[in-house]
Amino acid sequence: MDMQQRPIGQWFKSSKSGPNCDNCVEVQFLGGGNVELRNSRDPQGPTRVFDAGEWDAFIAGAKAGEFDLPAHAR
């Protein structure tokens, strides 16, 4: 499913997550440009909400490799 067609208010994991992987984050689009993020292992736990500008900046940085884990941190 194309990201632009994701339903509002439905949690989903990345397609890069394996079927048995519980080490993932999930996101849902809330409408109004807001995106909610949670730990998939703790779906009842705390969440973080980002506005459209924050989310776009994060995604652009992730695509550019700005948040890749450094080798010395592994």
Rank of each mutant, 00 (worst) to 15 (best):
E36Q: 10
A52W: 02
K16L: 08
A57N: 09
R6W: 02
P19F: 10
F67L: 09
V27D: 04
S40M: 04
P7M: 06
G9V: 09
A57P: 13
P70C: 05
R38V: 14
P7T: 11
N23R: 12
K63S: 12
D68L: 07
Q10K: 01
G9I: 06
S17R: 01
D42E: 13
E66H: 00
E36W: 03
W55A: 13
A60H: 08
G33M: 01
F12V: 06
G61R: 07
N23G: 13
F29Q: 06
R41G: 15
R38K: 02
K16S: 14
K63E: 14
I59N: 13
F58I: 14
C24S: 07
G65H: 08
D56A: 12
Q44T: 11
S40G: 13
A60G: 15
E54C: 00
G32H: 06
W11K: 02
T47H: 01
L69E: 14
Q28D: 12
G45Y: 07
W55C: 12
K13G: 12
A57R: 01
L37V: 15
P19L: 08
E54K: 00
A60W: 01
P19I: 11
L30E: 03
P43E: 14
T47Y: 01
V25R: 01
Q28P: 01
K63G: 12
E66T: 02
R41W: 06
R48E: 11
G9D: 12
F50V: 11
F58K: 00
G32L: 01
Q44V: 05
G53S: 15
V27S: 05
E26Q: 14
G33S: 08
V35S: 02
R6Q: 08
E36D: 10
D51Q: 03
G32Q: 02
F29R: 07
P7L: 05
F50C: 09
V49Y: 04
